[in-house]
Amino acid sequence: MKERLEQLKQEALEKVTQAENIQSLKDVRVEYLGKKGPITEVLKGMGKLSKEERPVIGQLANEVREEVANAIETKQSRLEDEALERQLEEESIDVTLPGRPVQVGGPHLLTSIIEEIEDLFIGMGFEIKEGPEVETDYYNFEALNLPKGHPARDMQDSFYITEELLLRTHTSPVQARTMGKKNGSEPVKMICPGKVYRRDTDDATHSHQFTQIEGLLVDKNVRMTDLKGVLNTFAKQMFGEDRDIRLRPSFFPFTEPSVEMDISCKVCGGEGCSVCKRTGWIEILGAGMVHPNVLEMAGYDPKEYTGFAFGMGPERIAMLKYGVDDIRNFYTNDIRFLEQYHKA
């Protein structure tokens, strides 16, 4: 019997080795390890054996059984691995084909610039204020020290609706409105971005509609050096730490003294080039100390309260920062223009 078992083992292992697929392996299992298989048969015939032989043969039979089962299992897992490998090989794809596009839109370049400036001033403790685009003559001009008959408010420059209503020509009326709500006693620290309108024929450098950002700080003891400090912080954050600023005298009816702020030219580093018209400086914004008449009209005592204001054009900043060469680009909404600046 012993020989018979050894022989069966050899046979079975031989067949396992020969099995080429999972089915034939299954057949081997059924053939040798099944209930009607030869090993079971051997075990069934154990009754005929002597008491002494029985445990020896029984153990041997179990060992053979186990050995064959192990061999089948090992082979099976190998065959399965091979099958999976073949399958995965077949599933292989061309990873260089393009991915499924995810459509993402983006902000208008002017919005990006305005929000960048907003965030910058919010960081310095400024609020954002907004005001109407159709303004009264009073807030657009009179409250800003531009009385009737002042040359700067010529009908030619503004879009009037009635004698008393017009499209605001600057965001400055928001200053007057905001100050007016404070009863002459609270400080104001705000910026106001928005659309403004002027009677200009649209061309590469003029647009009848454009945007502005106005800033205002009114408090006790505000000094001109504070204006310089705030503008310097703004310029360095907006245009780069390596840029310098300078103030030079200018004129606005609602500030006195009035200045214009230049930043050093990025292209030539201040040496002078065609971009900065050989001056080394590029004009960025207008500013000044709030005119006493403006403070007074808003209810503040100009002896007690002082302040500074500044105003800039996001279009100009965009044109300088990104080299946009025609202001009309901002308003034609050509998709090829808009999409260029989504990372801006």
């Binding site: 993402v104 839109g105 983006g106 208008h108 808009l338």
Partner: peptide, 11 residues
């Protein structure tokens, strides 16, 4: 959602 922002004329 895939939309691009425009700024058009008010007038």
């Amino acid at each position: 959602a895939g939309l691009n922002e425009t700024i058009t004329y008010s007038l």
